[in-house]
Design a protein around this nucleic acid. Structure first.
Length: 596
RNA sequence: GCCUUGGUAGCUCAGUUGGAUAGAGCAACUGCCUUCUAAGCAGUAGGUCAUGGGUUCGAAUCCCGUCCAGGGUACCA
């Protein structure tokens, strides 16, 4: 049983016995004792003063005596101000270590008879440009939260909605037709998604110039934006596309294929994957049908220009457009269709959308719309709303080419990792391919950790010049510690030192105990990460664990220890720490090298 | 304007449902490699938790006001 639960029961018994008092939920506050004080577990006694009618010190003393006498695992106690600090027996901690050491699934809840099916949508790229740093955050969060939910016993379906149609791709298509000169990934040597992205930027350049020209001629900005030749041409392409015009469809297919080939490479590099991919081109008609059904039922209304709207003023939201006056569908239309299809395809208990916080409003509206359309799961959808990645110069803008490109970033990171490794003279014993593989792991470890250690809800700053480091609170620091432990375990094996599970030591040192305690926290951390939808919880835990291990490593001999029992304990401890690091970092999608 | 999120060390970030003296990393300075990986360990310095009130045994955390910043706000996604 977890130590918190044991103590909880003990305090309940104490309160009943001493003060004839039954506490309500959360009245018993159990926390870890501050490091600079004696004890392991601390109980806050302030909430009980009302029933004890005594001073904090006296109350703590009374409860402490009771618990010491009645709870086996409590060795001793002390009271400081209003805090009752309990010291837990050495044997309890050793048992908890053995549990972690022997249990391969330590920290993983087994799936129940009927595990919850959670669908996680993430990535969801538009097919008009390559992935950038913002997408990286999305992909890493989506992948990680999926892994975390799995570890908590859920059945997870990772999904991706590829926004492969719409005005954005028409812009790239038009630009390619007009200024492309038959350029292809093959004849230009440019990765497909990057090539299409170039035309998106090209479009915007011309579009902006046209607007400026029209404004010069005296048009209002709004009119100019709507009358520029480029945008008219792109809109015409969209209409042709929806009318299934052959030439348009062919170009669309060709350019999308270029993009998918490019995305696949990037996804692979990032180590993310999907169980089911939906394409907007296959879902938007379902959405359109739903909107028309809603219109018929009188849930939505039509304006004179034929556009279809939802009036959400009763829900304290706005009027929302669902179909444009020319009949084409918008972003919301396809999301309705996609949701419908997903719930038909899978028996989903929980739907999570990993989408940036700039779309908070969109998902509030989507939930209401689905609800209005009669889907009972509509208002239960969960928008995993994460913050933006900002550059020192501000927000990234694809159209202006002001982005940190995902592929470039990964390549740069690998280069830096290689340079650092060479400077330090590491990896010299490895073959070239092994070394390259390790550089890749370290580079991605640095990048992934950097992004995932931040609270997802918050905006974060990425400074290309100085953000990625390999020392301190970083992925490589954690990987380094893992590799270090592996090295120790290898050396132990070389010396034919075997590990046995009968730990018998007189005492354990303070550092050893700190480490043990940290290890035993892991399962509840995995739980917390799922409840808070936060990979950052795992990242921060791993950092704390590793920091403590390095202190332990610095202060204690392991193989060099002459007392065989102590040496055995330290080997078990080291091995367990390594395995917890690996498990935890795996939940973040970060691999651990054996040497570095 | 309205809605919404945030403001913690020079910089990047932690800080559990309100708890003890607010923590890390980077950058700066100082020590520690003839014994298991120095991508490490230890130390120094750095704070009016934006700001003013309130709630209470106790507030970075909860409530109200103000300032500043990000995001959203009806035919972009």
């Amino acid at each position: 049983m977890k130590i918190e639960n044991i103590i909880q029961k003990g305090v309940e018994a104490a309160l009943a016995e001493l003060y004839d008092f039954t506490p309500v939920a959360n009245q018993i506050q159990i926390q870890n004792t501050r490091k600079d004080l004696d004890g392991d577990i601390t109980i806050v006694v302030f909430p009980f003063l009302r029933v004890s009618k005594k001073s904090p010190e006296q109350t703590g003393e009374e409860i402490g005596i009771f618990i010491q006498q009645n709870v086996d695992v409590v060795n001793s106690f002390n009271v400081i101000k209003g805090f009752l600090n309990l010291e837990i027996t050495k044997n309890y901690w050793i048992d908890s270590l053995l549990d972690a050491y022997t249990n391969e699934n330590f920290g993983i809840s087994s799936e129940g008879e009927n595990p919850n099916t959670v669908m996680v949508e993430y990535s969801s790229p538009n097919t008009n440009k390559p992935l950038h740093l913002g997408h990286i955050r999305n992909n890493l969060l989506g992948f990680s939260i999926s892994e975390i939910l799995k570890a908590n016993g859920n059945k997870v379906v990772k999904t991706n909605i590829v926004n492969d149609r719409g005005i954005h791709i028409c812009k790239s298509m038009y630009a390619w037709q007009k200024w492309g000169n038959g350029k292809t990934p093959e004849n230009s040597g440019i990765k497909g998604d990057h090539l299409v992205g170039e035309f998106y930027v090209e479009f915007d350049k011309h579009y902006k110039a046209e607007i400026a020209e029209l404004v010069e001629k005296g048009l209002s900005k709004e009119d100019a934006e709507n009358q520029a030749p480029s945008i008219l041409a792109a809109r015409e392409l969209l209409l042709k596309w929806e009318a299934k015009d052959d030439e348009t469809l062919n170009l669309w297919k060709t350019m999308n294929t270029w993009v998918y080939d490019g995305f696949e490479i990037t996804y692979k590099k990032l180590g993310v994957d999907f169980d089911k991919i939906y394409y907007e081109s296959e879902t938007y008609l379902v959405g359109k049908k739903e909107v028309l059904r809603g219109l018929k039922k009188g849930i939505f209304y039509q304006k004179d220009d034929n556009s279809v709207w939802a009036d959400l003023t009763n829900e304290k939201l706005d009027q929302k457009i669902l179909l444009r006056s020319d009949g084409t569908s918008v972003y919301m239309t396809q999301d309705i269709g996609t949701a419908k299809m997903r719930f038909e395809d899978y028996s989903i208990n929980e739907m999570i959308y990993v989408v940036g916080n700039e779309q908070n409003y969109h998902f509030q509206v989507l939930a209401v719309l689905l609800d209005k359309l009669g889907y009972k799961w509509g208002k239960d959808l969960y928008h995993f709303s994460y913050g933006m990645v900002e550059l020192p110069s501000g927000k990234m803008k694809s159209r202006e080419g002001k982005v940190v490109d995902a592929d470039d970033l990964v390549e740069d990171m690998i280069k830096v990792a290689r340079n650092v490794a060479n400077e330090l003279g590491k990896l010299e014993s490895l073959s070239d391919s092994e070394a390259a593989e390790t550089h890749r792991m370290i580079a991605l470890g640095a990048l992934k950790y950097f992004i995932l250690k931040v609270d997802p809800k918050k905006n974060m700053l990425f400074n290309p010049e100085e953000s990625i480091d390999f020392n301190g609170n970083t992925g490589p620091f954690i990987q380094y510690t893992y590799a270090r432990i592996q090295s120790v375990l290898r050396k132990a094996a070389e010396k034919n030192i075997s590990i046995h599970k009968n730990i018998s030591v007189e005492t354990i040192s303070a550092k050893e105990k700190d480490l043990l305690k940290r290890v035993s926290l892991y399962p509840s951390i995995v739980n917390e990460a799922a409840n808070n939808h936060s990979p950052a919880v795992i990242a921060n835990y791993c950092f704390e664990l590793v920091k403590e291990y390095n202190q332990f490593y610095h202060d204690h001999y392991i193989i060099g220890e002459t007392d065989e029992e102590i040496r055995n304990l330290r080997l078990i401890l080291s091995s367990t720490v390594a395995s917890v690091i690996k498990k935890g970092m795996n939940l973040l999608g970060i691999e651990m090298p054996e040497r570095m």
